[in-house]
Design a binder for these strands. Sequence first.
DNA 1: CCTCCTCGTGGAATCGATTACATGAGGAAT
DNA 2: ATTCCTCATGTAATCGATTCCACGAGGAGG
Lengths: 347, 347
Amino acid sequence: MASIKDVAAEAGLSVATVSRVLNDHPSVSDDARRRVMAAVEALSYRPNAVARSLRTDQTRTLGLVISDVMNPYFTELARSVEEEARALGYSVIIGNADERPELQDHHVTTLLDRRIDGLLVSPTDRGSPRMLEAARAGTPMVFVDRWIPGVDVPVVRSDGRDAVRDLVAHLHALGHRRLAIIAGPAATTTGRERVDAFREALGDHGLDLPDAYIGQGDFQADSGRRVTEGFLDLAEPPEVVFAADNLMALGALDAVRARGLRVPDDLALAAFDDVRWFVHTDPPVTAIAQPTGALGRAAVRALVDRIEGRPGESVTLPARLVVRRSCGEPAPTTQSPHPSPVRRSTS
Amino acid sequence: MASIKDVAAEAGLSVATVSRVLNDHPSVSDDARRRVMAAVEALSYRPNAVARSLRTDQTRTLGLVISDVMNPYFTELARSVEEEARALGYSVIIGNADERPELQDHHVTTLLDRRIDGLLVSPTDRGSPRMLEAARAGTPMVFVDRWIPGVDVPVVRSDGRDAVRDLVAHLHALGHRRLAIIAGPAATTTGRERVDAFREALGDHGLDLPDAYIGQGDFQADSGRRVTEGFLDLAEPPEVVFAADNLMALGALDAVRARGLRVPDDLALAAFDDVRWFVHTDPPVTAIAQPTGALGRAAVRALVDRIEGRPGESVTLPARLVVRRSCGEPAPTTQSPHPSPVRRSTS
DNA sequence: CCTCCTCGTGGAATCGATTACATGAGGAAT
DNA sequence: ATTCCTCATGTAATCGATTCCACGAGGAGG
């Protein structure tokens, strides 16, 4: 593969001049510019990004360490992150942690070794030494969706408190009184917060959340199935399950169906995270929708701000409830794939 | 960030020795090794992958340019690619082409600029000059899922011919005679092949595929919706639509539902690509399942073989039919989320 | 005791770019 | 005519690693 020296030789100029042309530095003659361009063309030369990065100490690359790529929510997040990054002139390298701390650590390490300019993380746990160390050492970093308390890093996330309140009001209005939740891992902020928000909202209606109605999941479908089976085996099973993410809701659907029961008649179901498939499931699932694209974009902007020496602030965007049929209400008759929400949180 | 020089200074040795320890070269004394390790620890030194790559001319990184990350089939493929690559000591950088040739070209270019060791592509079109040039120039490359005829690059894909034949037999047995297809872009091999296989299978039953029953889609949900609406507007609409990928099937489902019609009663539906959500849609969708994980792994192995100087061969794996309820047959009574296929292709 | 190997180590070149500094030509100002 | 700038260009240092080559110490064999 042709290097800058080959181009310089072909053009009859020094590498310095070639470099100047390539980085359109003002002080080059038109003649030199033309000759360099011709040589570049003739050799189909492309600058070596590795060499350039070594010299300039910047890779124009962002690392994104995500909890689980197979989760449509994170897939969408990753996509919006890449789009915004590309618009700002950065590439993105995605690392999939699969909800496993040791894999997360592996990806953080290799990304850091590659000297990415900044790191976007949706932490699976409370943070490995390597990650905390990097944050302390000043590697530009932003948490997205989930975060680690006590670490001084901007957080871009969505606040589901209002939406959960709307959801509980909706469920209460439908006559449900025994409400259960399939929680996410306690090591994640989203795992804890969603339970807290749910409990708080139940409190508003004078209901409480007994321990038996808190199932411990891990954000994966299997755990949703397992927890739901446990709920159905209780002497007094809940009337509704609220899954803290879309995959556990899918697992819950599996469990209900495997027993030959029906949603919502035998057990109502709601989920955190709205995904397009929820429109087509049997029945369509009532869910709390996060502004996923906006989160990804905001996270990238905050990170790039940090990288380029600007402040880079935390952002919190509201989630909203999307009512469908999985909790018992007849479907609003509408053509739209996303029936109108009960209430839209203010932004 | 500490460099190898700092480590050398701290250990009281030369950078050469430090480098030898780090790459566990045989000829280093135990004493030197200990001192280097101590210095590495003390400075929490990590080697700079950028510098290393420049010197060794290898990045231990694979590029994966995928047609559409939001498509669950490709998400799963990407995941298996990353897993296998990691097992073989490589990282993966994913570029999402979003079915847009110019985006595909953008990613191929930046990946090549970064001097990735090899490229895995699922081409969106017939190939940009840059990509064809890279293939000709000997950049290790493997096509996965889709390929470009006439380019001398191994292809790892799945053959759906038998499964499509099984599908058509199934549809025919259910009494369907007017069968339509939502095709993928003609620029892609999968777009063309699935239509051919379908037509051929229809021929086996003395049926033909009129032009009016071939809708032109682009592998995205919207096109599935549009084409299906067109089918429903025909004087003699088809009894079945076969969508050439899962997203177009989703669009078809939208279209049917928007008219207040039912699957399979008013229109039966089948899809190429099985995704886990198809079990839970209303009704569960009959689909052709590709061995996605195996494809991803085989593709990585073929690519790494090429990179490391071994042959690196093409692989074709069979797809199989998974019957559910969207074509009219009552569901087989089973607990399994994937009811037993009508017939399993031999591997 | 001399020669020859082996082993551990260090010096320095190298990968492909960017960039500070030097240089020389040519024009403007005095 | 002399001095001083500006502009286009080149030389060479540099980034952080790897690796070829040279060298000295020490042991084995004659």
